[in-house]
């Protein structure tokens, strides 16, 4: 059983609008898979179907060998979802959020699990503050930390960096890379090409309800005419400038 996700001819409509018109793709175990698409392309719909939150109209989808519609219970045992909007309880503290999920996963020592994750995600100082006081990046880290509890084999990250500043985005990227190194399969959706380029082993592009291309970054690049050598004066991008300035400040 090498495949973490297998999707065949997946279809979904909302009222009369067809969002998914026959989507096919596969995700291998242990890889980072990026689903790329513009706003409203149906990325979240796919995530919701795979995470058993939505029923497909047609086609099949299996996660870790289980059909999402027929064996949703088994699917839920092996996945974690980090939705588009940070799914943390804002009234609880970071620590309480983690303990709550650890209890719901029926782990033996919820307090210890929470303490370890707070450390790993650099949230120790903020542990006993309400999540509503967290910055966007901290909230996202807490969100992802909550998804790691119980060591699920597959993690869905639906636009994990949308709305984050560049620094927080890099923090999240590092977390995702670390995850993949530890053998977890990561299914990521994004509208940023750069993010897919940075992180993904496999990339699929969703457009108008279908996957129009998929493959590794190298394979996708081959689809275009061979690179031409041109001399262009390279100015630092504003983002590079911003990060360099901030980096300098922190060194002081």
């Amino acid at each position: 059983m090498e495949k973490a996700i297998e999707v065949k001819d997946l279809r979904k409509s909302f009222k009369s609008a067809a969002v998914l018109k026959g989507v096919d793709f596969e995700v291998k175990r242990g890889e980072i898979f990026a689903l790329l698409g513009s706003n409203g392309a149906g990325k979240t719909t796919i995530v919701k179907i795979l995470a058993t939150l939505l029923k497909p109209d047609g086609g099949t989808a299996t996660v870790n060998g289980f059909d999402v519609a027929a064996h949703s219970e088994n699917v839920r045992q092996s996945i974690s979802l980090t939705g588009q909007f940070a799914a943390v309880d804002e009234i609880l503290t970071g620590r309480e959020n983690l303990i709550m999920i650890a209890k719901l996963r029926h782990l033996k020592n919820p307090r210890q699990v929470a303490a370890d994750l707070l450390k790993r995600f650099g949230l120790v100082d903020a542990a006993d503050r309400r999540a509503s006081t967290y910055s966007g990046g901290m909230r996202r880290r807490l969100d992802i930390a909550m998804s790691l509890i119980g060591k699920p084999q597959l993690i869905f990250l639906d636009e994990p960096t949308t709305g984050l500043d560049p620094e927080a985005r890099i923090e999240v990227w590092n977390v995702v890379k670390e995850l993949a190194n530890s053998g977890t399969t990561v299914f990521l959706t994004t509208q940023y090409l750069e993010e897919a380029e940075q992180l993904a082993d496999q990339i699929a592009i969703l457009h108008e309800g279908r996957i129009i291309v998929s493959g590794t970054l190298e394979e996708l690049k081959k689809l275009f005419p061979p690179a031409k050598v041109e001399y262009v004066e390279k100015q630092p991008s504003l983002e590079e400038l911003f990060l360099a300035l901030i980096g300098k400040k922190e060194e002081k």
Binding site: K48, A51, T52, L53, E73, R76, Q77, I79, S80, L81, T82, G83, Q84, F85, A86, A87, V88, D89, E90, I101, L104, R105, M146, S147
Partner: peptide, 13 residues
């Protein structure tokens, strides 16, 4: 609204 329901619903509870 907050998405915490989606987290709960995608968990084995």
């Amino acid at each position: 609204q907050s998405g915490i329901f989606e987290r709960f619903h995608s968990m084995p509870i």
